[in-house]
Design a protein around this nucleic acid. Sequence first.
RNA 1: GCGCCUGUAGCUCAGCUGGAAGAGCAACGCCCUUCUAAGGCGUGUGUCAGGGGUUCGAAUCCCUUCAGGCGUACCA
Length: 580
Amino acid sequence: MIDLINSVENKIKSILNELNIQEDNVKVVESNKAGLGQYQYNGVMAIAGKNGYKPQELAQKICDLLIKDDNILDANVAGVGFVNITFKTSALINQVNKYEVEKDKICVVKNHKIFIDYGGPNVAKALHVGHLRSADIGEGLKRLARKLGYEVISDVHFGDWGRQMGMVIAGIEERMPNLPFFDENFKGEYPTQSPVTYKDLEEIYPLANIKCKEDEAFLEKCRKYTYELQNGNAGFVALWKLFVAESMKPVLKTYDFLNVSFDLYEGESTCNDLIAPMVKDLLDRKVAYESQGAVVIDVANLDDKVEVPPFLVLKSDGAAMYSTTDLATIVNRQKRFSPQEYWYVADNRQSLHFTQLFRATKKANYVDENTTFTHFAFGTMNGKDGKPFKTRDGGVMSALTLIDNVKTEIRNKMADNNEVNDEICDIISSATLKFADLSNNRETDFIFDIDKFCALEGKTGPYILYTTVRANSVIKKAQMSDIENFELLDIDNKSYIDVLLNLIKAPVVLQRAFEQKALNVICDYLFVLSNSFNNFYSQTKILTESDESKKKSYLKLCSLVSKVNEEFLDILAIKVPERM
RNA sequence: GCGCCUGUAGCUCAGCUGGAAGAGCAACGCCCUUCUAAGGCGUGUGUCAGGGGUUCGAAUCCCUUCAGGCGUACCA
């Protein structure tokens, strides 16, 4: 993906060929010994012995020939036979200038549609810190795919139809039993104002949840109410609409703060009308059958290492559950969009559910065989004790509280900076949170540490923003037009060259991030690039450089760093402020 | 019980398609009359959980033990 590196790999291949050594797998990788070289080839040790060479001898032969290459400044042998390569700066510049071309090569698939389901906030439950992950990762993956030319449709998929709805209704009834929604004989118009606020809901749901565990009769009532809601009890439906809308208010506010948005704001309930016909269809075609009173689809495979339980289409009380709505939602999405790929960004703990869902979908022939389903699982955010937060019983820091904490930190920091307004504070706060979240490997669990999430120094969102704003500031102060078209020149300045070395990696980073669906790869790169730029900045006077052509090169470098930073930050859905 | 995941510096974590152990924080020291010091530079730290195996070479692949987490049909 980096032409320059490919050409060296091919060069080494042909050198080996001339020595009668067949080796197709030649990889030149970044050097981990700065000072010895920029890139290295480590394959010599593996092939030398087989071909009658001492490793260092063969490595030396390769170096002797490599050094004649137009792109290569130096090649030397180190250790047991590592080949270290240093490029001519002109070659690096040439490669930097190919950025757009290299990027276009990454996406070769055309007319490819992806449907992505992420976010998944639940009605009546405040977003807590763990919910940030699905939103941040999903938004990032969506933008990354779009950047590479895929068509992507996103849906937030509100949790608005499962048993927790019955629990909320029952919980509201406990508090306000005289509301008309609960009066079966009520004939008038139902109120249009929600009887509860979202803050009330955040109390009502956890209380109802606790009560369900202690009180079997109450649990039974919740199940009944859920069933009745799903089957059109007019009072329940009217009440449900009101508290769903109320409950979404803070959720949407939080998403807005995180720069997260969706093409579709649908929920589990959206497909309710499809459930009955779907169940009938599945039973008619004998894809599903009745078991222990429930309707299920067998999804076990012979070669399963573990017994995969049947997929539940309907519970034994006839109510829909998340598996029901997920399946019906696919029917719905397939009818409307027929994407080639379905992506689900959800917690690790749901992996068995998705295995079942995907198998059930295929077994029912709801999609054609080429359609792929992938669950992009992410690790849980754990408490200090290393255990996942339990949301049902409450007690976990809400996302909004965390956001307030970060904002406070930023404002304190900004106390004597009167250039910065509230809007900029919000941008920086959002960047702080998102970068902290996305820096972690997607799949591993990590311990939530508020200090880490609010940190403003080191490998953080503000660091990247600061670097970008700084570069932009220099560009602005230069008061020259057309800086983006200035030429990079071969200048003997180590920190300048280090930035170039990082810039050539940009397309590879995009590719790797996409292949692995790993946004932390982008975070790491942003940090490394910014770090090298800050080093350059501290050592190089740009605006007062007397050599005009050098000054122009330096300004071009600023503009490149700023451009790549902004582009990559945009993938992470992080905005860059005007100043900070 | 079975399955999946995790175990790397004092703390939080990268690295895991094998190649010469990393970052941030914390600690100490240096650098603002000069383009944004939310910055730069320097210093120290490791039986990569333990034990085997494969390999010229293993944090990385295989086996095994230990510790923790999650999941295991009517919650999501």
